[in-house]
Amino acid sequence: MDNTRIVVAGAGSIGCFVGGSLALAGRKVRLLLRPRLNDRVQVAGLRLTDLDRRDRSLPPGGLDLSTDPAEALGDAGVILVTVKSGDTREMARLIAEHAPASAIVVSLQNGVDNVPLLRALLPNRTVVAAMVPFNVAQSWPEDAAPRFHRSTSGAVTIEDGLDRLRALLDVDGLPCRAHPDMAGLAWSKLILNLNNALNALSGLPLREELSQRPWRLLLARQMAEALAVTRRAGLRLPKIEGVSPAMIPHILRLPDVLFGIVARRMLAIDPQATSSMAEDLAAGRRTEADFLQGAVVRLAATHGMKAPMAETIIAMVAECENGARRWTPEEVARRVADARDDAKPIPQPS
């Protein structure tokens, strides 16, 4: 399977890091990417760095690049879908139109809705659930290769029982392992990804945000709300990177000194790293708040519950999309408190 054509469909931060790592290991990789990034990589190449101090480069001409979906997908054996959740439907259409029916489609996306959507839109194809637990930040130094930096830790995870595919994706700098419950793991990761929006609202690097207890308390409340919803829905949430999602709110509530000791691994983040949602806001792109916090809101409604904190965060991110600003944790807490008051039932006269 080593000679299988791997197409990274939607090569942005995650896609370029994953595709570049596979290419460096000798895999046959093609990146389907936007024209601006394509032009820069054609001239300057690609640089991959990580938290473990790897610093590797692919020279100009060292990658197969395309901006044309028909050209990129035409001989695909494995398609790694790395587009944002809002673009999943369109990517499914392109795969259906241009990719061989035998191509294996692997979702490396955030959220819990993408794999079911891909399976519904590509009913006669193999669609595999996968998860990327780490954050990748991109930068474009002047007159140098675009840099894609893995700023947190973790291994790519795919469905159990696909040993040949796992081996194909398991390379130096990009470990890949299998898990028997990818649907549950997707919800575990979504619980962690709820911080993406808070980090975007804060305007702070992730490490600095998590070092401040007021922000951690907000994140703990947001996670606790989501955990209550998943319990009502009867979902089992497996450990992610060795940690149970149910334990994380308790850890987040610890005083700063204790948190720094207990959560050393959680704080093993590049000092300047921000969430992907913060990057999206800074670049004027659509965010995934409606696919992260929104999934909690929709699941709550299905089970007769409300998720006022998730609803509030979605609204605040939408405000930032229309004009970026930084929020203090006190401002966020006040908005959440107001939303909780609005969510209370109005007493009926006796």
Score class of each variant (00 low, 15 high):
Leu227Asp: 01
Ala283Ser: 08
Thr126Glu: 06
Asp68Pro: 07
Arg54Met: 13
Glu319Asp: 14
Trp140Met: 10
Arg286Lys: 12
Thr328Ser: 13
Ile346Gly: 13
Arg213Ser: 04
Ala233Asn: 06
Trp215Phe: 12
Leu192Ile: 14
Val18Thr: 01
Leu169Ala: 12
Cys176Ser: 01
Ala70Pro: 01
Glu241Phe: 09
Asn135Val: 14
Val128Glu: 01
Pro60His: 03
Ile314Gly: 08
Ile158Val: 07
Leu210Arg: 03
Val136Asp: 00
Val156Tyr: 07
Ala226Arg: 00
Glu159Cys: 04
Val106Arg: 00
Asp341Leu: 11
Leu235Pro: 06
Leu169Asp: 15
Leu299Tyr: 06
Pro255Met: 11
Trp215Ile: 04
Val81Tyr: 06
Asn3Ala: 14
Gly86Glu: 10
His149Lys: 04
Ser153Trp: 14
Arg213Leu: 07
Asp280Ser: 04
Ile313Cys: 11
Asp290Lys: 07
Leu252His: 10
Ser188Pro: 00
Ile191Met: 11
Pro249Gly: 11
Phe291Ile: 00
Glu331Val: 13
Ala343Phe: 11
Leu218Cys: 01
Gly12Trp: 09
Leu168Tyr: 03
Ala76Arg: 05
Arg89Val: 07
Gly284Cys: 06
Leu174Lys: 02
Leu65Thr: 00
Ala120Asn: 08
Asp113Trp: 06
Asp338Pro: 04
Ala155Trp: 05
Ile248Gly: 07
Leu258Asp: 01
Val257Ile: 15
Ala76Trp: 02
Met182Cys: 02
Ala224Ser: 13
Arg253Ala: 02
Glu209Pro: 00
Asp172Met: 12
Glu97Ile: 03
Thr312Met: 13
Val296Ile: 14
Asp55Arg: 09
Ala282Glu: 13
Asp160Gln: 11
Phe148Ile: 02
Pro345Phe: 08
Leu37Asp: 02
Ala318Cys: 08
Ala197Asp: 07
Gly20Ile: 06
Gly323Pro: 04
Asp256Cys: 08
Pro60Cys: 05
Arg93Cys: 01
Ser188Met: 00
Leu210Trp: 08
Arg216Trp: 09
Arg326His: 15
Gly203Ile: 14
Ser275Glu: 01
Ala76Lys: 04
Ala72Val: 03
Leu281Pro: 00
Leu94Gln: 11
Ala99Ile: 03
Asn196Lys: 09
Ala11Tyr: 05
Val41Tyr: 14
Val156Glu: 05
Ala273Phe: 10
His149Arg: 08
Ala324Thr: 14
Asn38Leu: 13
Ala343Pro: 14
